[in-house]
Deep mutational scan, measured.
Amino acid sequence: MKATFQVPSITCNHCVDKIEKFVGEIEGVSFIDVSVEKKSVVVEFDAPATQDLIKEALLDAGQEVV
């Protein structure tokens, strides 16, 4: 499964690193693409990962998800 999250609070590479760390810890996540320019995060994943778990990880990383 693939999901795109709009994350307007992404401003720098530190944000990218933190997002990759938090989302990458979720079992089932196979790909993460964070774009500072587009302020988006694209995640490819399989169970047990879910969109809700990914959104929670983004929030835990200090990001706003819309």
Rank of each mutant, 00 (worst) to 15 (best):
L53E: 07
G24Q: 07
P8N: 10
V66T: 11
D60C: 12
I26F: 03
I54H: 00
D17K: 14
E20A: 11
G28E: 00
T4N: 08
F45M: 00
V42Y: 15
P8I: 11
H14S: 15
I26P: 00
V42P: 01
C12D: 13
E20M: 15
D46A: 12
F5Y: 07
I54Q: 02
E56P: 00
L58Y: 01
V23I: 11
K38R: 11
S40L: 15
S35G: 04
N13Y: 10
K18W: 10
G62Q: 07
A57D: 00
S40N: 07
K38G: 09
A49T: 03
I19S: 01
K18R: 11
V65D: 05
A61L: 08
D46M: 12
V34R: 00
V42K: 07
V7W: 06
T4L: 13
A61K: 01
D52L: 09
Q6M: 12
L58K: 01
E27S: 07
S40I: 14
D60T: 11
V65T: 05
I26D: 01
A57S: 04
L58H: 02
Q63N: 06
H14K: 15
G28S: 01
C12Q: 11
F31N: 10
F5G: 06
C12L: 08
E56I: 12
I54T: 02
E56C: 10
V66W: 04
S30I: 13
A3S: 08
P48L: 00
V16C: 08
A61C: 14
I19A: 00
I19Y: 00
K2C: 14
L53N: 05
V16M: 06
F22N: 05
F31M: 07
M1Q: 13
V42G: 04
V65H: 06
T11W: 15
A3Y: 08
A47N: 06
D46N: 13
F31W: 13
V66R: 09
F5E: 07
D60Y: 11
D46I: 13
K2V: 11
K39E: 04
C15E: 12
E37M: 06
D17E: 14
K38M: 12
D60G: 10
C15Y: 10
V29G: 01
D17V: 15
V23R: 00
V16G: 04
S9D: 09
F31G: 07
E56Q: 15
G62M: 13
E64Q: 12
K38I: 04
K55N: 05
T50K: 02
M1K: 12
E37A: 13
K18H: 06
L53A: 13
A61V: 04
H14C: 13
V29R: 00
L53F: 05
I19M: 03
Q6W: 15
D60E: 13
C12G: 14
E44I: 14
K39I: 04
V66P: 06
K21T: 06
V16Q: 05
E20C: 10
T4E: 14
F5K: 00
V7S: 02
V7I: 09
E64L: 13
Q51I: 15
I10A: 04
I10N: 02
E56V: 09
P8R: 10
I54N: 03
I19D: 02
I10T: 04
F22Q: 06
E44N: 08
E27L: 11
S9W: 14
V42C: 08
D46K: 12
S9H: 07
G28L: 03
E44C: 15
K2D: 05
K38S: 11
C12H: 12
V16K: 13
Q51M: 14
V7P: 05
T4C: 13
I54E: 03
V66Q: 09
K55I: 15
E37S: 11
P48Q: 01
T4S: 09
I19L: 04
F45S: 02
I19N: 01
E37I: 10
D33N: 10
V41E: 01
F45R: 01
S35N: 12
E64A: 08
S9V: 05
L53V: 07
F31D: 04
P8L: 10
I32C: 04
D46W: 11
A49K: 01
I26E: 00
F22A: 13
K21G: 05
F31C: 09
D33G: 09
L59G: 06
Q51Y: 15
Q6C: 15
P48E: 02
F5M: 05
V66C: 13
K2M: 08
I32M: 04
A3N: 06
E27T: 10
S30V: 13
S35W: 04
I10W: 11
S35K: 05
D60V: 10
L58T: 03
K39D: 04
K21Q: 09
F22T: 08
I32Y: 00
V36K: 05
K18F: 08
V43C: 03
I54D: 02
V65Y: 06
H14D: 15
E56S: 13
A61P: 02
S40W: 11
V29Y: 00
V16Y: 05
K18N: 07
F5L: 05
V65L: 08
I19P: 02
L58D: 02
C12V: 08
G62L: 14
V65F: 07
S9K: 04
V23F: 03
V43N: 01
P48C: 01
C12R: 08
E37W: 05
G28P: 00
V34Y: 03
E25T: 10
V7G: 04
T50W: 03
G62P: 03
E64V: 15
T50S: 06
I19G: 02
P48G: 01
E44V: 13
L53D: 05
E25I: 10
G24N: 07
T11L: 09
T11Q: 11
I54M: 01
K38C: 12
D52P: 05
G24K: 09
V36S: 03
L59V: 09
I26T: 03
E25G: 12
I19H: 00
T50P: 03
L58M: 05
V43Q: 00
E44M: 13
E20Q: 14
V34N: 01
K38L: 12
T11R: 13
K2S: 08
Q63P: 03
V65N: 05
A61E: 02
V42N: 06
F22L: 12
I10S: 03
E56F: 08
V36R: 04
Q63F: 15
E64G: 06
K18M: 11
E37C: 06
D46Y: 12
S9Y: 10
K2T: 10
I26M: 05
I54P: 00
E20F: 15
D33A: 11
A61W: 08
E37K: 09
V65S: 05
K21H: 08
V34G: 02
G62A: 08
Q51F: 14
F45A: 00
L59D: 04
L58W: 02
V66A: 10
T50C: 04
K21L: 08
N13T: 13
V34T: 04
A47T: 07
K21N: 06
C12Y: 10
Q63E: 05
K39F: 05
F31S: 11
V41K: 00
V29H: 01
D17C: 09
D60P: 03
E37L: 07
I26G: 00
E64M: 14
V43K: 01
I54Y: 02
D33M: 12
A61Q: 04
F31I: 08
S9Q: 06
V66N: 08
F22I: 13
A49L: 02
V34L: 03
A47V: 08
D52G: 08
E27G: 05
A3H: 08
A61S: 06
N13W: 10
D46P: 02
P8S: 11
S35D: 12
M1S: 11
D33R: 09
I10F: 06
E25F: 08
E44A: 09
V42A: 07
G62V: 12
I32T: 03
S35I: 07
A3W: 08
V29I: 06
I10H: 02
N13P: 12
D52K: 12
S40H: 11
V43I: 06
H14W: 10
D17L: 11
D17Q: 13
V36L: 11
I26C: 03
A47W: 14
C12F: 08
K21M: 08
D33P: 03
F31V: 07
S30N: 08
K39R: 11
H14R: 15
K18D: 07
E25L: 14
K2Y: 06
Q63T: 06
S40T: 15
V41L: 05
M1V: 09
V7T: 05
T50L: 03
T4R: 09
E44D: 05
V29C: 04
K2R: 12
D17H: 10
A61H: 04
K55W: 14
K38T: 11
K39V: 04
D52N: 08
T11N: 08
C12I: 08
T50D: 04
K21Y: 09
I26W: 00
A49G: 02
K18P: 04
T50G: 03
V16S: 06
K55F: 13
S30C: 07
E64F: 12
F45T: 01
C12E: 11
F22V: 12
E56W: 09
G62F: 13
I26H: 00
T50F: 03
I10R: 00
E27I: 11
L59Y: 08
L58N: 02
Q63I: 13
A47E: 09
E25N: 12
I19F: 03
Q51N: 07
F31Y: 12
V41G: 01
Q51C: 15
E25M: 14
E25P: 05
A49H: 02
T4G: 07
A57W: 00
S30M: 14
L59C: 06
Q63W: 14
H14V: 15
K38V: 05
